[in-house]
Design a binder for these strands. Structure first.
Lengths: 237, 237
DNA sequence: ACAAAAGTGTTTTAGGTACACCCATGT
DNA sequence: ACATGGGTGTACCTAAAACACTTTTGT
């Protein structure tokens, strides 16, 4: 046990997912830096090194709170990323050392996902000059291995929603239509669902309860609203 | 971003599972230390701080190699543990600082599970004065949060074997009987399985192939051996 | 002969899949 | 009237669950 210990730092990164009614979106923050090629602007996942006296979970919670103002977003740790070549790109290392004022050999990051209701409140809460909810197709190339982290986060939410279907409803507004729920499921599992079978299925789920209220002012038959009944859900487990 | 950064260390811990034909066992190493109550002897999971120039996966692989002599055990990272009160027990902190010669505030550990064929080779490979394959019921109270880590590892292998049934066969000898496979499944999911339904099921799995060979010298009807056909498995995905 | 574990089929139930047309509303 | 998305039922198939007795072998 005499080999030199790594001078590592530990960070957390958050993959916050929202659903805009059509597509999944992910919260990204803007990054400005410079390298030999001059200035650059790109995006990264919200994250932070962890502070003294701070649990991993607390750090993740802090990052999302600072960014959105929302206090108790659900957070689930899903994977650690500690490959040496996470910091292979000199641009990333340079940016880190300037931003964090620490000498960086490697950063092990613990990644969390969060599923949030992407309502107007939350859209307004993020300052568009520093952060943005991007739909998955428009994410582009991110700093570090953050594209990989998003891929793994998607796998993780597929796994987790299999075991715990209530997670889906964290992404939906309190009142939602059957087709919102269906489209969300299609986006997560990336496969089309039969409309009739889907209706049949939700009609026999005790925790998806139909309301009398319907959409207003749409140029087609108004869709019924549903709500998620958490008590019925936990009771049916 | 001016709060003091944590002086954290990063370690990996391995939960190596074996199956003895009856029960799941886990590889533990002995720990000797002292505190105000005098000497103590207890056990912990095999683990290590990570060295410079070492990936997390490499560190985990190294730990199991040093302990068992086996080079390429499969390893799957399943969770990071970074709670501050992991090092709440002064006995643990004291032991660490003596053993590792580092000042410890907190250690974030990345936990891996490994599924191994617990054959005579491997039983012999571990020095009984330093390590031991303990059946789950006899694990007792371990150092740090290692009991929690084992619990989480069990959950993780349930999840993972759901997605990838080939993992089960990593725990079995090359030739195994139907009841070994059944008992293993029962131990992992902690629920009894109907014998007839189980036979029906494996008889239609292309990757569980019956052999002509049978048990010898048992005081009852000799059981047929089966083998796992990895090609048939990957083909059937 | 008996103890001990291996092995074998049928029926029922639930859930998944495939599939095509009419309904309500705004323009 | 027409464009747009909402909503509905039946038949088939597959997989899981429940359930009890006979077979083989060593002692």
């Amino acid at each position: 046990m005499d080999a030199p210990l790594a001078n590592n730092h530990i960070s957390i990164d958050c993959v916050a997912f929202g659903f805009d009614g059509e597509n999944l979106r992910v919260l990204l923050v803007k990054r400005n830096g410079s390298d030999q090629g001059g200035e650059f602007n790109d995006m990264k996942l919200p994250g932070s090194l962890i502070y003294q006296d701070e649990d991993l979970d607390e750090a993740a919670s802090r990052v999302l709170r600072e960014l959105t103002g929302v206090k108790d977003l659900s957070l689930t740790q899903f994977k650690a990323f500690g490959s040496k070549d996470r910091t292979r790109n000199p641009r990333d290392v340079h940016w880190l050392e300037r931003a964090q004022k620490v000498k960086v050999e490697r950063i092990v990051t613990i990644a969390y996902f969060s599923l949030v209701k992407l309502d107007r409140n939350l859209e307004k809460a993020v300052d568009p000059s520093t952060a943005e909810w991007r739909s998955l197709a428009e994410v582009g190339t991110l700093a570090f291995d953050h594209n990989l982290i998003i891929e793994e986060a998607l796998k993780a939410i597929r796994r987790e929603t299999d075991n715990n279907r209530s997670l889906l409803f964290d992404l939906l507004p309190k009142k939602f239509t059957a087709s919102q729920l269906r489209m969300l499921t299609e986006r997560i599992y990336d496969k089309p669902l039969d409309v009739r079978n889907f209706h049949k299925k939700i009609s026999q789920l005790p925790y998806v309860v139909p309301l009398e209220e319907r959409q207003q002012g749409v140029a087609h038959r108004a869709a019924r609203y549903y709500r998620f009944d958490r008590k019925a859900y936990t009771g049916s487990r």
